[in-house]
Each structure stands twice: as structure tokens, then as C-alpha cells.
């Protein structure tokens, strides 16, 4: 007997649980946009190459166009709609706004979700391809413009707002490094705990 090709699933998105039927072919991107009316997440290439559809899964950035919705059940999903604190913008959003880190704005939700994760990854000590010495004894590299460009290379901007995007990420990272500040808007383990399982529950 052929296995069923659709399922009823529950997705945990921005702290809310949504139960919905999905054809297994549905990507998380299409489920967000077409079934849940969360249209902040954008569809660009639909092939994992442009980053417009970037969301956070268990606190880590991922491209939702290559993530099957059915396989996202049990993960803690954060989209651009879940980044701000009510009407109060997240510092990364404010930095993009203040420094003109966009032109048309289509790639911006993906840029911001990616930037949130870049700041967390850097704070957790992750090296990048721009890091001269990856050995742990070499310490954490400074989040230089070169490091930001490499770490953000999965997000394309066809308007070419890269110069301002780099400045916005740098400013947001500086603010997040201040005592008492946190860049984390979401409700899951970030990159600081490699391999740590998500608890699947939202934190108030």
C-alpha cells in the first residue's frame, strides 16, 4: 500500500502553535506564506541560493525554501514577524532602518533573520571562512567588515545595499555586546549549545 502523501502537522511559530494539513511536498516557506498568511518571509530563488526566505529553526538560521514543512514539526520556528517586541523593533531591525540597510526591502526579512544568527554565531565563537586561524586557541575573531561579508554571503541583495547592510550588522553586533544586552528574540537554544536539543516549548 502506498504511504499517505499528506499529513496533519503542528508547527510552533513565533511562540504560537498552528495545526494545518500539508501535502508532503509543501516547503516551510510555502506553508508560512500560503497557508498561515505569514508573508514576511519572502520567496526569491526557491533554490536555497538567495537567502530571502531565511528563518530561524531552533534559533539557527535556515532557508525555508529547502525545508519541508512536515520535517519542521517539533522545531521552534521564528520568522521576521516574531523578531520585534510588539511595536518595539529589535535592535537589528532598528540598525537596518537607521543605516538604510536596504533599498526595495524584498531581501530585508531574510537579511535581518540571518544577521540575528550571525551575531549569535560570532558570540558563540564560531569561526568563518574569513577567519585566518580556526584553531580554538586563536580565540574569537573580531566581527570585522570582512567577517560580516563572509558570514552574510548567503543573503543576496539585488539592489546592492551591501555597504549599508554591513554597517547595520556591525552596529547591531556592537550593541548586542554591551553588558545586559541580548540579541536573541527567539525562544530556542542558539548556536552556543551545539547539538543541544530544542525543548519545543515557547518561553514567555
Amino acid at each position: 500500500m502506498a504511504p499517505p502523501t499528506s499529513s496533519a502537522i503542528t508547527l510552533n511559530i513565533n511562540g504560537e502553535k498552528h495545526t494545518l494539513p500539508v501535502d508532503h511536498r509543501t516547503t516551510l516557506l510555502d506553508a508560512l506564506r500560503e497557508q498561515l498568511d505569514l508573508t514576511g518571509t519572502k520567496k526569491g530563488c526557491d533554490q536555497g541560493q538567495c537567502g530571502a526566505c531565511t528563518v530561524l529553526l531552533d534559533g539557527r538560521r535556515a532557508v525555508s525554501c529547502l525545508q519541508l514543512a512536515v520535517a519542521a514539526e517539533g522545531r521552534v520556528i521564528t520568522t521576521i514577524e516574531g523578531v520585534a517586541d510588539g511595536e518595539r523593533l529589535h535592535p537589528v531591525q532598528q540598525a537596518f532602518l537607521d543605516l538604510d540597510g536596504y533599498q526595495c526591502g524584498y531581501c530585508t526579512p531574510g537579511q535581518i533573520c540571518s544577521a540575528l544568527a550571525v551575531i549569535e554565531e560570532h558570540a558563540a565563537g564560531w569561526p568563518s571562512a574569513a577567519t585566518a586561524d580556526v584553531r580554538p586557541e586563536a580565540g574569537v575573531p573580531e566581527l570585522s567588515a570582512e567577517e560580516i561579508r563572509e558570514r552574510m554571503s548567503g543573503n543576496l541583495c539585488r539592489c546592492g545595499a551591501y555597504v549599508s547592510i554591513v554597517q547595520a550588522v556591525a552596529r547591531a553586533a556592537e550593541e548586542a555586546a554591551q553588558p545586559g544586552a541580548s540579541s536573541r528574540p527567539w525562544q530556542a537554544d542558539g548556536p552556543g549549545e551545539p547539538g543541544a536539543p530544542a525543548d519545543g516549548e515557547a518561553v514567555a
Binding site: G48, G51, T54, L57, R60, R61, A62, V63, L66, Q67, S114, A117, V118, E121, P127, S128, A129, T131, D133, V134, R135, R151, M152, S153, G154, N155
Partner: peptide
């Protein structure tokens, strides 16, 4: 094995490496 870490970091994007 620093070359292994460098090789993995040189591939794809941060989003894809997380997946």
C-alpha cells in the same frame, strides 16, 4: 584537523551549513 573545519566553512552559506 583545521583543514577539515576550513573545508566545511568554505562550503555553501551559513543557512545551508546549519541544515
Amino acid at each position: 584537523y583545521p583543514a577539515l573545519a576550513q573545508a566545511v566553512l568554505s562550503g555553501a552559506s551559513g543557512q545551508l551549513r546549519n541544515m
